[in-house]
Design a protein around this nucleic acid. Structure first.
Lengths: 258, 258
DNA sequence: CGAGGAATTGAGTAGGTTCAAGGCCGGTGG
DNA sequence: CCACCGGCCTTGAACCTACTCAATTCCTCG
């Protein structure tokens, strides 16, 4: 788990990986491309041309409205893979951009096919990771639809901490959080002003510290209560036994590539 | 397209299907199970045991909050497949329940594998359909985060009409819409009272009729404007040429089942 | 040390909620 | 065929959460 890419650490939550799996996954992350902060990686309307693994930094999927408003859909952190199946679509329906200086490794279509064909365990883990992102999206819908401002803020903070934990980037309950209040607001469906006031509140109540791009949950318990946070949706508990069985069978009978 | 299951009609939007594909997909829908209105199909916490195709009726994914509030995540209509990869997860993080009397066909894990292994075109189409659902979720996030109440209502109505069109269940701009205002509200992150007032408004402005469980868009143009609706996210324009190439190659070199 | 983005604060406003009551419509039983 | 019942829709008035606009202060980085 240590010295490995965040991708490996993340996927290990689904299933123990073989040494070869780890080697292959680490190899994916070798050819990184660097992006400055606040740079678009792909734009709405673009033809998706490749999948990516994010190795360092932070990015987000977002959508701009005609009036200029922005909605951030998901935050992408190290270990996250995106647009794995993008090649099935003609055009992106949203953009992906960096929030800070970020490094990505592109994964070619051919490699994607190869992983799914010849490495069933990795293929399954990638699927799992896609399911996790879907679950995160659903959770965001719940938050935006049915939680008030403090619930939303608390929920997002919890989520970010738990996700960073899952890739080994959180010490205790503290993480690097390089987001501005405008960015938080754009993810939460709120205004920056209101996010500010909510943050004042949770700081005053001694639930968190947030300064110098560093977030610490002081009272994670109570924060989760406010958020209605339940980490089940992150599905970090490992694959169910039957799935392991299926995957092991396929692992022993690899399909050949084309 | 006619006489075929909604599933076939839907997937044909991605790529023309062969006669055999159509036969296989239609065969999936033979063994239907009937569910009464307002019945849970799977509940949060359950172990996912199978994938489903919805063949008749309407259902939704939803989540109940501890205080009793509900958020509807997605509406499922005929032709929609759900929990295709559910077996990779230990527990459902949300529930799925019918809204009206509904018929579903279960798809066993083995069948799912078989489709992906031996029928690449169908496999790709199923992937595409999963990508479409993700896009719909993202769109919901945008709506809840950055659109006002009338925008949300208009957007949902447009979406439902366009989706029903895509399975051949809309005449012109009219569809069956068996949802109560409470259900609409639970999907839109609003209260039923406010949904009611918004609906009054769009009716008064002669943009829609909605009565006797039947919705007609009178001025679809203007409704889309209010909604900021752009159907691109439904990805109904067919697969990109390169993807077709890849899929055709695999179709000629099928992998054997296990 | 200066500049510019980010955070903070205040006051007024608006969009949506809440609570409560009344009306409609479809279905059921006599 | 009519009367009744229950769920759904409709309406009103008061309230409140979050927004808007604008000014000020704080940091960070060059």
């Amino acid at each position: 788990m240590d010295g490995n890419s965040p991708l490996v650490v993340k996927l290990s939550h689904f299933m123990p990986l073989s040494d070869e799996d780890v080697r292959i996954l680490n190899a994916l992350c070798v050819h990184e491309k660097r992006f400055k902060a606040h740079t678009d990686i792909v734009r709405e309307g673009d033809v998706p041309f490749s999948a990516f693994v994010l190795t360092h930094g932070m990015a987000c999927r977002y959508r701009l409205m005609p009036e200029g408003k922005r909605q951030i859909l998901t935050f992408l952190i190290p270990g996250d893979i995106f647009d794995l199946h993008g090649f099935l679509l003609k055009a992106m329906d949203h953009s992906v951009g960096t929030l800070v200086a970020t490094r990505l490794a592109a994964i070619s279509r051919a490699t994607v096919f190869d992983l799914f064909d010849r490495h069933p365990r990795i293929g399954a883990a990638l699927w799992w990771s896609a399911l996790q992102e879907e679950a995160i999206n659903r959770e965001r819908i719940v938050a935006l639809g049915r939680r008030d401002a403090s619930g939303r803020v608390a929920h997002l903070l919890c989520e970010l901490v738990w996700r960073q934990k899952a890739i080994g980037l959180a010490e205790d309950h503290a993480i690097r959080l390089p987001l501005t209040q405008v960015e938080l607001a754009d993810a939460l469906g709120l205004t920056a002003v209101h996010v500010n006031r909510i943050l004042q509140g949770v700081r005053r109540d001694n639930l968190i510290t947030l300064a110098h791009r560093r977030l610490t949950l002081i009272d994670a318990e109570r924060l989760q209560e406010i958020a209605g946070f339940n980490q089940n949706y992150l599905h970090l508990g490992g694959a169910p036994p039957e799935a392991r069985g299926y995957i092991d069978i396929r692992e022993r009978e690899p399909r050949e590539g084309h």
